[in-house]
């Protein structure tokens, strides 16, 4: 891992922990976007995993009704603790433990009560697709993005279609008239 990547990730994890303590959902989302930005450049699994985790946590914390679940507060404490552990491992350049700590977020779901577990699992799945869409928005192809996030292209196309990604000026290359004529000529 390059020095700048490490520094960025340390900053992100530190700020994420502060945002969680304050219940600052907006900052968590911004941090997730920042991480996606870096993920697009470095195309590292770690960045994507961090982006998905932080975005998922922002979604979980924004849903006040989840507080009624028995395992909610323990789960939140656990997540905060895990982020701090991950940060410490990264600081010590122990990348294997760092990555394992991040991956353990998904395993924590198994300890939750049934309904809450189902919600959280759904949030993490949707977070992957949302982050994939943001990567694609940066200019990475749909296929590459789907492969990177380990999701199906069917799923990603379905989601991307509902965003404004195609309605940017750079999207238009050939004129509609020319493109239609090219197809017409082939089927003439």
């Amino acid at each position: 891992m390059e020095k700048i990547q490490k520094e960025n990730l340390l900053k992100i994890l530190k700020l994420a922990r502060i945002a969680i303590k304050k219940g600052d959902v907006k900052t968590l989302r911004n941090l997730s976007d920042w991480t996606v930005h870096d993920a697009s450049i470095y195309q590292s699994d770690i960045y994507v995993l961090v982006a998905v985790i932080i975005y998922s946590l922002s979604k979980i914390y924004s849903r006040e009704n989840y507080e009624t679940y028995k395992s909610y507060h323990l789960y939140c404490e656990d997540c905060t603790g895990s982020l701090e552990k991950a940060r410490v491992f990264l600081e010590k350049d122990d990348l294997v433990s760092f990555e394992n700590q991040l991956k353990s977020f998904l395993n924590k779901i198994n300890k939750l009560d049934k309904k809450f577990k189902s919600h959280v699992k759904d949030i993490f799945e949707r977070a992957k697709i949302h982050k994939a869409s943001r990567l694609h928005e940066h200019g990475i192809s749909l296929g590459r993005t789907a492969e990177f996030l380990e999701i199906s292209q069917f799923e990603l196309m379905n989601y991307v279609g509902t965003t404004g990604i195609s309605d940017v000026k750079e999207n238009i290359t050939l004129s509609v008239k020319e493109r239609l004529n090219n197809v017409r000529n082939v089927f003439k």
Binding site: L156, N158, G161, I165, V176
Partner: peptide, 20 residues
Amino acid sequence: LKLRGVSISSEEINEMISLI
């Protein structure tokens, strides 16, 4: 088609309809 992922703008769709 657009809403299920085809990279076409709404502007292009309107133009296409007028040309068909």
